[in-house]
């Protein structure tokens, strides 16, 4: 069994509105799975189905090979996008309460909380009320509460919103460490750079349908256009451009460089290899930049959503 979580053609309607239409996903064990999609695509509904907050109209969800049951709540840690804490409750009490709701004993919860509070250097907040803390501080506590019961599956919905870059990095490292310790992570976000950094699998949901999924690397390979970014040193840009245009598809490129080069995007011809292109270019001018254009997650996202 390689997949920790499998959703089989899950559908959910709210009245006439279809929130999910036969969506299936497979989340491999130990992976960080990016659940992407525009606003209102149905991501949150899918996450709520996994958390048993919402019951699907049809389809099934398996966790670790078993159909979802109420005891699985303990195996999942969920950080919702709409999150908050009881404002007038003290940090420590609140964390203990939420941990106990996840099935931890009070003493065990206390021990683990101490570990995490020390780790994140927030030990002296224990007796403060949430309303005395800043939003970022409250988010940290929320994060601790989510991971405290060491769930097999962690679901983060926009985990970095509200964090400054330093704390965002801190949380990112914690997520990676949790993954290394064996947890599986589902990660829903709009921030494509964090997808790029963290995810190894993604699924893209658009208008209630899954339109793309798989390993991020495979998807990127699928979306690559065989285009190369090149920087050429020349004193006659027009002639050189025309010369290249005779053999290749060329467009203007824009990248940062130290020199005032001629910058072009050149698409390989079908049977050529990158070496062929490089050989051709070196025979015409001095090449000081040569880089394959890899589609970013953001490109893939925009392109897929537009095309569907």
């Amino acid at each position: 069994m390689n997949n920790l979580l499998v959703a089989n053609s899950v559908s959910k309607n709210f009245g006439k509105f279809t929130a999910l239409n036969n969506v299936s996903i497979e989340v491999p064990k130990g992976s960080i799975f990016g659940l992407l999609g525009p606003n209102g695509a149905g991501k949150t509904t899918l996450i709520r189905v996994i958390n048993q907050i919402t019951m699907p109209d049809s389809g099934s969800v398996m966790l670790d090979g078993q159909p979802l049951q109420s005891h699985h709540i303990r195996d999942i840690g969920y950080l919702p996008e709409e999150r908050g804490l009881y404002k007038s409750m003290k940090v420590g009490e609140q964390a203990l309460y939420l941990a106990q709701l996840k099935g931890l004993s009070k003493s065990e919860a206390k021990k683990r909380l101490k570990y995490w509070f020390d780790k994140l250097e927030i030990g002296d907040w224990w007796n403060k009320k949430i309303q005395e803390l800043s939003k970022g501080m409250a988010q940290k506590i929320q994060f601790v509460v989510t991971v405290l019961h060491q769930p097999k599956l962690l679901i983060f919905d926009e985990p970095f919103s509200g964090f400054d870059p330093i704390n965002a990095n801190l949380i990112k490292d914690e997520i990676l460490q949790l993954r290394d310790e064996g947890a599986t992570v589902i990660f829903s976000t709009h921030r494509m750079e964090s997808v790029e950094e963290l995810c190894d699998h993604i699924a893209l949901i658009h208008e209630s349908n899954k339109i793309l999924d798989g390993k991020l690397q495979d998807i990127k390979r699928e979306f690559k256009t065989n285009t190369f970014e090149v920087g050429l040193v020349t004193n006659n840009e027009v002639d050189l451009t025309n010369l290249i245009k005779e053999k290749f598809d060329v467009s203007k490129a824009d990248f940062k460089s130290l020199n005032d080069d001629l910058k072009l995007n050149i698409k390989l011809n079908d049977n050529d290899t990158s070496n062929d292109l490089l050989r051709f270019l070196t025979s015409k001018a001095e090449v000081n930049h040569f880089n394959e254009l890899v589609p970013t997650a953001s490109d893939i996202f925009i392109q897929t959503v537009k095309n569907s």
Binding site: I53, I73, V145
Partner: peptide, 15 residues
């Protein structure tokens, strides 16, 4: 209060 403080989804994923 639970709704406005947005804690509800956290709780509801446990109970």
């Amino acid at each position: 209060e639970e709704k406005t403080s947005r804690i509800i989804e956290v709780i509801i994923s446990s109970v």
